[in-house]
Design a protein around this nucleic acid. Sequence first.
DNA 1: GCATAAATAGTACGATCGTTCTATTATTCT
DNA 2: AGAATAATAGAACGATCGTACTATTTATGC
Lengths: 193, 193
Amino acid sequence: MSKGDDTRQAILQTGLDMASRIGLEQVTIGNLAKQSGLSKSGLYAHFQAKEALQIEILQLAGQIFAASVLVPALRSATGIDRIRRVVANWRAWNENLAGGCVFASACNEYKDRPGRVRDFVVAQQREWLASLQRLAQSAVDNGDFRSDIDTAQFAYDLYASLLGFHLFQNMLDLPDANERQAHALEQLLDNYR
Amino acid sequence: MSKGDDTRQAILQTGLDMASRIGLEQVTIGNLAKQSGLSKSGLYAHFQAKEALQIEILQLAGQIFAASVLVPALRSATGIDRIRRVVANWRAWNENLAGGCVFASACNEYKDRPGRVRDFVVAQQREWLASLQRLAQSAVDNGDFRSDIDTAQFAYDLYASLLGFHLFQNMLDLPDANERQAHALEQLLDNYR
DNA sequence: GCATAAATAGTACGATCGTTCTATTATTCT
DNA sequence: AGAATAATAGAACGATCGTACTATTTATGC
Protein backbone atom coordinates (compact mmCIF):
# COMPACT_ATOMS: atom_id res chain seq x y z
CA MET A 1 0.00 0.00 0.00
CA SER A 2 3.01 2.26 0.50
CA LYS A 3 5.60 1.52 -2.14
CA GLY A 4 3.18 1.96 -4.98
CA ASP A 5 1.96 5.30 -3.75
CA ASP A 6 5.50 6.57 -3.38
CA THR A 7 6.33 5.58 -6.93
CA ARG A 8 3.12 7.09 -8.17
CA GLN A 9 3.88 10.39 -6.48
CA ALA A 10 7.42 10.40 -7.84
CA ILE A 11 6.07 9.80 -11.33
CA LEU A 12 3.68 12.73 -11.04
CA GLN A 13 6.41 15.01 -9.73
CA THR A 14 8.69 14.07 -12.61
CA GLY A 15 5.80 14.46 -15.01
CA LEU A 16 5.06 17.93 -13.69
CA ASP A 17 8.66 18.92 -14.21
CA MET A 18 8.60 17.64 -17.77
CA ALA A 19 5.24 19.25 -18.47
CA SER A 20 6.52 22.63 -17.39
CA ARG A 21 9.43 22.30 -19.76
CA ILE A 22 8.07 20.63 -22.88
CA GLY A 23 4.30 20.84 -22.41
CA LEU A 24 1.80 18.41 -20.96
CA GLU A 25 0.98 16.82 -24.30
CA GLN A 26 4.65 16.03 -24.86
CA VAL A 27 4.93 14.14 -21.59
CA THR A 28 4.86 10.80 -23.27
CA ILE A 29 4.48 7.49 -21.49
CA GLY A 30 7.82 6.30 -22.83
CA ASN A 31 9.65 9.51 -21.97
CA LEU A 32 8.20 9.70 -18.51
CA ALA A 33 8.93 6.02 -17.85
CA LYS A 34 12.56 6.43 -18.87
CA GLN A 35 12.89 9.58 -16.76
CA SER A 36 11.32 7.79 -13.80
CA GLY A 37 13.42 4.66 -14.18
CA LEU A 38 10.43 2.45 -14.91
CA SER A 39 9.27 0.39 -17.83
CA LYS A 40 6.48 1.74 -20.00
CA SER A 41 4.01 -0.85 -18.78
CA GLY A 42 5.19 -0.52 -15.19
CA LEU A 43 4.37 3.14 -15.27
CA TYR A 44 1.21 2.71 -17.26
CA ALA A 45 -0.25 0.34 -14.67
CA HIS A 46 -0.47 3.22 -12.19
CA PHE A 47 -2.87 5.08 -14.45
CA GLN A 48 -5.28 3.47 -16.83
CA ALA A 49 -5.00 6.09 -19.52
CA LYS A 50 -2.79 8.98 -20.53
CA GLU A 51 -5.68 11.33 -19.91
CA ALA A 52 -5.79 10.28 -16.25
CA LEU A 53 -2.07 10.85 -15.94
CA GLN A 54 -2.35 14.32 -17.43
CA ILE A 55 -5.17 15.31 -15.13
CA GLU A 56 -3.35 14.01 -12.07
CA ILE A 57 -0.29 16.03 -13.04
CA LEU A 58 -2.47 19.12 -13.26
CA GLN A 59 -4.03 18.29 -9.91
CA LEU A 60 -0.61 18.02 -8.31
CA ALA A 61 0.36 21.33 -9.90
CA GLY A 62 -2.81 22.88 -8.54
CA GLN A 63 -2.10 21.66 -5.02
CA ILE A 64 1.46 22.96 -5.07
CA PHE A 65 0.31 26.25 -6.57
CA ALA A 66 -2.37 26.80 -3.95
CA ALA A 67 -0.07 25.81 -1.10
CA SER A 68 2.87 27.91 -2.21
CA VAL A 69 1.18 30.92 -3.79
CA LEU A 70 -2.20 31.57 -2.21
CA VAL A 71 -2.24 30.06 1.27
CA PRO A 72 0.87 31.77 2.69
CA ALA A 73 -0.37 35.14 1.44
CA LEU A 74 -3.80 34.65 2.96
CA ARG A 75 -2.19 33.79 6.30
CA SER A 76 0.35 36.55 6.54
CA ALA A 77 -1.23 39.71 5.16
CA THR A 78 -4.39 41.56 4.19
CA GLY A 79 -5.48 44.07 1.58
CA ILE A 80 -2.95 45.38 -0.88
CA ASP A 81 -0.10 43.76 0.95
CA ARG A 82 -1.75 40.39 0.52
CA ILE A 83 -1.99 41.01 -3.19
CA ARG A 84 1.70 41.91 -3.33
CA ARG A 85 2.57 38.65 -1.59
CA VAL A 86 0.42 36.61 -3.92
CA VAL A 87 2.16 38.16 -6.90
CA ALA A 88 5.61 37.60 -5.42
CA ASN A 89 4.76 33.95 -4.77
CA TRP A 90 3.23 33.67 -8.22
CA ARG A 91 6.42 34.87 -9.85
CA ALA A 92 8.45 32.53 -7.66
CA TRP A 93 6.22 29.63 -8.68
CA ASN A 94 6.94 30.45 -12.27
CA GLU A 95 10.67 30.58 -11.69
CA ASN A 96 10.84 27.44 -9.56
CA LEU A 97 9.27 25.28 -12.22
CA ALA A 98 12.04 24.39 -14.62
CA GLY A 99 10.20 25.51 -17.72
CA GLY A 100 7.73 28.08 -16.48
CA CYS A 101 4.10 27.96 -15.48
CA VAL A 102 2.53 24.68 -16.45
CA PHE A 103 -0.94 26.22 -16.53
CA ALA A 104 0.06 28.81 -19.09
CA SER A 105 1.37 26.05 -21.33
CA ALA A 106 -1.66 23.87 -20.75
CA CYS A 107 -4.00 26.71 -21.68
CA ASN A 108 -2.35 27.10 -25.04
CA GLU A 109 -2.12 23.38 -25.64
CA TYR A 110 -5.76 22.60 -24.91
CA LYS A 111 -7.29 25.77 -26.28
CA ASP A 112 -8.91 23.83 -29.09
CA ARG A 113 -8.56 20.25 -27.96
CA PRO A 114 -11.85 19.25 -26.39
CA GLY A 115 -11.86 16.60 -23.70
CA ARG A 116 -11.55 16.01 -20.00
CA VAL A 117 -8.11 17.58 -19.82
CA ARG A 118 -9.30 20.82 -21.36
CA ASP A 119 -12.33 20.92 -19.10
CA PHE A 120 -10.10 20.47 -16.10
CA VAL A 121 -7.73 23.24 -17.16
CA VAL A 122 -10.60 25.64 -17.79
CA ALA A 123 -12.13 24.87 -14.40
CA GLN A 124 -8.80 25.46 -12.68
CA GLN A 125 -8.33 28.78 -14.43
CA ARG A 126 -11.86 29.92 -13.60
CA GLU A 127 -11.23 29.06 -9.96
CA TRP A 128 -8.02 31.03 -9.97
CA LEU A 129 -9.75 34.05 -11.51
CA ALA A 130 -12.35 33.83 -8.76
CA SER A 131 -9.56 33.81 -6.19
CA LEU A 132 -8.11 36.94 -7.74
CA GLN A 133 -11.50 38.60 -7.55
CA ARG A 134 -11.73 37.69 -3.87
CA LEU A 135 -8.33 39.26 -3.32
CA ALA A 136 -9.61 42.49 -4.82
CA GLN A 137 -12.79 42.37 -2.77
CA SER A 138 -10.73 41.78 0.32
CA ALA A 139 -8.67 44.87 -0.49
CA VAL A 140 -11.91 46.82 -0.84
CA ASP A 141 -13.14 45.56 2.53
CA ASN A 142 -9.80 46.51 3.95
CA GLY A 143 -10.17 50.06 2.72
CA ASP A 144 -7.19 49.83 0.37
CA PHE A 145 -9.21 49.85 -2.82
CA ARG A 146 -12.11 52.12 -3.77
CA SER A 147 -15.45 50.52 -3.11
CA ASP A 148 -16.75 50.96 -6.65
CA ILE A 149 -14.10 48.93 -8.43
CA ASP A 150 -14.81 46.09 -10.86
CA THR A 151 -13.19 43.06 -9.26
CA ALA A 152 -13.49 41.02 -12.46
CA GLN A 153 -11.58 43.72 -14.30
CA PHE A 154 -8.93 43.60 -11.59
CA ALA A 155 -8.58 39.86 -12.07
CA TYR A 156 -8.13 40.38 -15.80
CA ASP A 157 -5.53 43.11 -15.32
CA LEU A 158 -3.52 41.17 -12.79
CA TYR A 159 -3.60 37.90 -14.67
CA ALA A 160 -2.61 39.64 -17.89
CA SER A 161 0.35 41.21 -16.15
CA LEU A 162 1.60 37.82 -15.05
CA LEU A 163 1.15 36.41 -18.53
CA GLY A 164 3.41 39.19 -19.73
CA PHE A 165 5.92 38.20 -17.10
CA HIS A 166 5.77 34.61 -18.24
CA LEU A 167 6.45 35.62 -21.83
CA PHE A 168 9.32 37.92 -20.96
CA GLN A 169 10.90 35.52 -18.51
CA ASN A 170 10.47 32.10 -20.06
CA MET A 171 10.34 32.73 -23.76
CA LEU A 172 12.24 35.92 -24.45
CA ASP A 173 14.74 35.63 -21.59
CA LEU A 174 14.53 39.36 -21.01
CA PRO A 175 16.51 40.30 -17.91
CA ASP A 176 14.09 43.02 -16.88
CA ALA A 177 11.01 40.81 -16.63
CA ASN A 178 10.86 41.17 -12.85
CA GLU A 179 11.15 44.96 -12.94
CA ARG A 180 8.55 45.25 -15.67
CA GLN A 181 6.06 43.19 -13.76
CA ALA A 182 6.80 45.04 -10.52
CA HIS A 183 6.19 48.35 -12.24
CA ALA A 184 3.00 47.09 -13.81
CA LEU A 185 1.77 45.81 -10.45
CA GLU A 186 2.31 49.11 -8.64
CA GLN A 187 0.60 51.01 -11.42
CA LEU A 188 -2.24 48.54 -11.29
CA LEU A 189 -2.63 48.91 -7.54
CA ASP A 190 -2.64 52.69 -7.92
CA ASN A 191 -5.39 52.48 -10.49
CA TYR A 192 -7.67 50.73 -8.02
CA ARG A 193 -6.86 52.79 -4.98
CA MET B 1 6.78 27.46 -62.17
CA SER B 2 3.24 28.45 -61.22
CA LYS B 3 1.30 25.39 -60.16
CA GLY B 4 3.85 24.36 -57.60
CA ASP B 5 3.95 27.79 -56.00
CA ASP B 6 0.17 27.88 -55.76
CA THR B 7 0.08 24.51 -54.05
CA ARG B 8 2.89 25.52 -51.74
CA GLN B 9 1.05 28.66 -50.71
CA ALA B 10 -2.17 26.74 -50.16
CA ILE B 11 -0.30 24.27 -47.97
CA LEU B 12 1.14 27.06 -45.86
CA GLN B 13 -2.25 28.72 -45.47
CA THR B 14 -3.83 25.44 -44.37
CA GLY B 15 -0.88 24.81 -42.09
CA LEU B 16 -1.30 28.23 -40.50
CA ASP B 17 -4.94 27.51 -39.86
CA MET B 18 -4.11 24.20 -38.25
CA ALA B 19 -1.26 25.69 -36.22
CA SER B 20 -3.56 28.30 -34.77
CA ARG B 21 -5.97 25.62 -33.67
CA ILE B 22 -3.82 22.72 -32.50
CA GLY B 23 -0.36 24.22 -32.25
CA LEU B 24 2.53 24.35 -34.67
CA GLU B 25 4.15 21.19 -33.35
CA GLN B 26 0.94 19.25 -33.94
CA VAL B 27 0.81 20.24 -37.59
CA THR B 28 2.02 16.89 -38.76
CA ILE B 29 3.09 16.05 -42.29
CA GLY B 30 0.38 13.43 -42.56
CA ASN B 31 -2.37 15.62 -41.13
CA LEU B 32 -1.44 18.58 -43.26
CA ALA B 33 -1.20 16.42 -46.38
CA LYS B 34 -4.65 14.97 -45.80
CA GLN B 35 -6.08 18.43 -45.11
CA SER B 36 -4.46 19.77 -48.27
CA GLY B 37 -5.56 16.87 -50.45
CA LEU B 38 -2.02 15.73 -51.13
CA SER B 39 0.00 12.65 -50.39
CA LYS B 40 2.56 12.78 -47.61
CA SER B 41 5.47 12.62 -50.00
CA GLY B 42 3.84 15.04 -52.41
CA LEU B 43 3.63 17.61 -49.67
CA TYR B 44 7.00 16.79 -48.23
CA ALA B 45 8.72 17.47 -51.53
CA HIS B 46 7.84 21.16 -51.24
CA PHE B 47 9.90 21.47 -48.07
CA GLN B 48 12.96 19.43 -47.24
CA ALA B 49 12.25 19.16 -43.54
CA LYS B 50 9.48 19.73 -41.07
CA GLU B 51 11.51 22.51 -39.52
CA ALA B 52 11.47 24.44 -42.81
CA LEU B 53 7.72 23.98 -43.06
CA GLN B 54 7.22 25.29 -39.54
CA ILE B 55 9.36 28.35 -40.14
CA GLU B 56 7.61 29.12 -43.41
CA ILE B 57 4.25 28.92 -41.66
CA LEU B 58 5.51 31.41 -39.09
CA GLN B 59 6.82 33.65 -41.85
CA LEU B 60 3.44 33.64 -43.54
CA ALA B 61 1.79 34.42 -40.23
CA GLY B 62 4.22 37.28 -39.72
CA GLN B 63 3.45 38.74 -43.14
CA ILE B 64 -0.28 38.57 -42.60
CA PHE B 65 0.07 39.99 -39.12
CA ALA B 66 2.16 42.94 -40.27
CA ALA B 67 -0.09 43.65 -43.22
CA SER B 68 -3.35 43.44 -41.31
CA VAL B 69 -2.39 44.78 -37.89
CA LEU B 70 0.46 47.23 -38.15
CA VAL B 71 0.50 48.69 -41.66
CA PRO B 72 -3.11 49.94 -41.81
CA ALA B 73 -2.72 51.63 -38.44
CA LEU B 74 0.49 53.35 -39.47
CA ARG B 75 -1.19 54.66 -42.60
CA SER B 76 -4.41 55.93 -41.11
CA ALA B 77 -3.63 57.46 -37.76
CA THR B 78 -1.02 58.88 -35.41
CA GLY B 79 -0.35 59.00 -31.68
CA ILE B 80 -2.85 57.43 -29.34
CA ASP B 81 -5.32 56.85 -32.11
CA ARG B 82 -2.75 54.81 -33.97
CA ILE B 83 -2.26 52.67 -30.88
CA ARG B 84 -6.01 52.15 -30.60
CA ARG B 85 -6.14 50.97 -34.19
CA VAL B 86 -3.25 48.60 -33.74
CA VAL B 87 -4.97 47.06 -30.75
CA ALA B 88 -8.28 46.76 -32.59
CA ASN B 89 -6.52 45.06 -35.51
CA TRP B 90 -4.59 42.87 -33.11
CA ARG B 91 -7.76 41.64 -31.50
CA ALA B 92 -9.32 41.08 -34.91
CA TRP B 93 -6.25 39.09 -35.96
CA ASN B 94 -6.74 36.92 -32.94
CA GLU B 95 -10.41 36.38 -33.69
CA ASN B 96 -9.94 35.75 -37.42
CA LEU B 97 -7.53 32.90 -36.87
CA ALA B 98 -9.64 29.87 -36.13
CA GLY B 99 -7.84 28.95 -32.94
CA GLY B 100 -6.35 32.19 -31.72
CA CYS B 101 -2.97 33.83 -32.09
CA VAL B 102 -0.44 31.42 -33.53
CA PHE B 103 2.44 33.34 -31.99
CA ALA B 104 1.08 32.95 -28.48
CA SER B 105 0.86 29.21 -29.00
CA ALA B 106 4.29 29.04 -30.58
CA CYS B 107 5.84 30.90 -27.67
CA ASN B 108 4.57 28.34 -25.23
CA GLU B 109 5.46 25.41 -27.44
CA TYR B 110 9.05 26.43 -28.09
CA LYS B 111 9.78 27.96 -24.70
CA ASP B 112 12.19 25.16 -23.90
CA ARG B 113 12.72 23.52 -27.24
CA PRO B 114 15.97 24.86 -28.69
CA GLY B 115 16.40 25.01 -32.43
CA ARG B 116 15.82 27.15 -35.48
CA VAL B 117 12.07 27.36 -34.90
CA ARG B 118 12.50 28.73 -31.40
CA ASP B 119 15.09 31.23 -32.57
CA PHE B 120 12.73 32.42 -35.25
CA VAL B 121 9.83 32.83 -32.83
CA VAL B 122 11.97 34.76 -30.38
CA ALA B 123 13.25 37.06 -33.11
CA GLN B 124 9.69 37.72 -34.29
CA GLN B 125 8.52 38.55 -30.80
CA ARG B 126 11.47 40.85 -30.18
CA GLU B 127 10.67 42.66 -33.40
CA TRP B 128 7.07 43.06 -32.39
CA LEU B 129 8.06 44.46 -29.00
CA ALA B 130 10.28 46.95 -30.78
CA SER B 131 7.31 47.97 -32.93
CA LEU B 132 5.23 48.53 -29.82
CA GLN B 133 7.99 50.71 -28.39
CA ARG B 134 8.03 52.75 -31.58
CA LEU B 135 4.28 53.21 -31.27
CA ALA B 136 4.78 54.63 -27.80
CA GLN B 137 7.61 56.89 -28.96
CA SER B 138 5.43 58.09 -31.79
CA ALA B 139 2.72 58.98 -29.29
CA VAL B 140 5.30 60.91 -27.31
CA ASP B 141 6.41 62.79 -30.41
CA ASN B 142 2.78 63.49 -31.14
CA GLY B 143 2.30 65.06 -27.75
CA ASP B 144 -0.21 62.44 -26.62
CA PHE B 145 2.11 60.78 -24.10
CA ARG B 146 4.34 62.41 -21.49
CA SER B 147 7.89 62.76 -22.70
CA ASP B 148 9.43 60.92 -19.73
CA ILE B 149 7.67 57.59 -20.22
CA ASP B 150 9.45 54.25 -20.43
CA THR B 151 8.56 52.91 -23.86
CA ALA B 152 9.79 49.41 -22.99
CA GLN B 153 7.42 49.35 -20.04
CA PHE B 154 4.62 50.44 -22.34
CA ALA B 155 5.40 47.54 -24.67
CA TYR B 156 5.26 45.16 -21.73
CA ASP B 157 1.97 46.54 -20.47
CA LEU B 158 0.29 46.49 -23.85
CA TYR B 159 1.51 43.05 -24.81
CA ALA B 160 0.45 41.65 -21.43
CA SER B 161 -3.02 43.07 -21.89
CA LEU B 162 -3.38 41.27 -25.21
CA LEU B 163 -2.15 38.03 -23.69
CA GLY B 164 -4.93 38.38 -21.17
CA PHE B 165 -7.36 38.89 -23.99
CA HIS B 166 -6.08 35.77 -25.70
CA LEU B 167 -6.59 33.73 -22.54
CA PHE B 168 -10.08 35.05 -21.89
CA GLN B 169 -11.19 34.75 -25.48
CA ASN B 170 -9.64 31.54 -26.73
CA MET B 171 -9.27 29.40 -23.65
CA LEU B 172 -11.89 30.48 -21.17
CA ASP B 173 -14.52 31.59 -23.69
CA LEU B 174 -15.44 34.50 -21.47
CA PRO B 175 -17.96 36.74 -23.21
CA ASP B 176 -16.54 39.94 -21.75
CA ALA B 177 -13.02 39.50 -23.10
CA ASN B 178 -13.42 42.42 -25.48
CA GLU B 179 -14.72 44.77 -22.82
CA ARG B 180 -12.02 43.78 -20.38
CA GLN B 181 -9.29 44.45 -22.87
CA ALA B 182 -10.88 47.73 -23.94
CA HIS B 183 -11.04 48.88 -20.34
CA ALA B 184 -7.46 47.85 -19.75
CA LEU B 185 -6.34 49.70 -22.85
CA GLU B 186 -7.98 52.98 -21.89
CA GLN B 187 -6.54 52.74 -18.40
CA LEU B 188 -3.17 52.00 -19.89
CA LEU B 189 -3.34 55.00 -22.22
CA ASP B 190 -4.34 57.22 -19.29
CA ASN B 191 -1.36 56.05 -17.31
CA TYR B 192 1.00 57.26 -20.01
CA ARG B 193 -0.70 60.55 -20.81
C1' DG C 1 2.82 18.39 -80.08
C1' DC C 2 6.90 16.65 -77.96
C1' DA C 3 10.72 16.56 -75.14
C1' DT C 4 11.99 18.18 -70.76
C1' DA C 5 11.28 19.34 -66.36
C1' DA C 6 8.33 19.95 -62.36
C1' DA C 7 4.94 18.14 -59.34
C1' DT C 8 2.84 14.49 -57.12
C1' DA C 9 2.06 9.56 -55.69
C1' DG C 10 3.56 5.14 -53.87
C1' DT C 11 6.08 2.47 -50.83
C1' DA C 12 9.04 1.48 -47.27
C1' DC C 13 12.22 2.64 -43.24
C1' DG C 14 13.06 2.67 -38.16
C1' DA C 15 11.21 5.05 -34.20
C1' DT C 16 7.79 6.10 -31.10
C1' DC C 17 2.97 6.66 -29.80
C1' DG C 18 -0.92 4.71 -26.34
C1' DT C 19 -2.58 0.46 -24.97
C1' DT C 20 -3.20 -4.56 -23.78
C1' DC C 21 -1.76 -8.92 -22.33
C1' DT C 22 0.83 -12.20 -19.77
C1' DA C 23 4.83 -13.17 -16.85
C1' DT C 24 7.75 -12.16 -13.05
C1' DT C 25 9.37 -10.04 -9.30
C1' DA C 26 8.57 -7.37 -4.52
C1' DT C 27 5.94 -6.31 -0.84
C1' DT C 28 2.50 -6.97 2.68
C1' DC C 29 -0.46 -9.70 5.98
C1' DT C 30 -1.27 -13.46 8.99
C1' DA D 1 7.80 -18.26 6.72
C1' DG D 2 4.41 -18.80 3.38
C1' DA D 3 0.29 -17.38 1.04
C1' DA D 4 -1.93 -13.64 -1.05
C1' DT D 5 -1.48 -9.45 -3.30
C1' DA D 6 0.60 -5.49 -5.24
C1' DA D 7 4.09 -3.65 -8.28
C1' DT D 8 6.82 -3.91 -12.14
C1' DA D 9 8.75 -5.91 -16.52
C1' DG D 10 8.48 -7.84 -21.19
C1' DA D 11 6.65 -8.37 -25.52
C1' DA D 12 3.48 -7.26 -28.96
C1' DC D 13 -0.53 -4.58 -31.33
C1' DG D 14 -1.82 -1.15 -34.91
C1' DA D 15 -1.17 3.65 -35.82
C1' DT D 16 1.45 7.48 -36.88
C1' DC D 17 5.68 10.09 -36.82
C1' DG D 18 9.56 12.33 -40.13
C1' DT D 19 12.21 11.07 -43.90
C1' DA D 20 14.14 8.76 -48.13
C1' DC D 21 13.74 6.56 -52.45
C1' DT D 22 11.72 5.38 -56.81
C1' DA D 23 7.81 5.66 -60.04
C1' DT D 24 4.31 8.13 -62.40
C1' DT D 25 1.61 11.78 -63.62
C1' DT D 26 1.08 16.64 -64.96
C1' DA D 27 2.49 21.11 -66.55
C1' DT D 28 5.79 24.00 -69.15
C1' DG D 29 8.88 25.80 -73.09
C1' DC D 30 10.22 25.33 -77.79
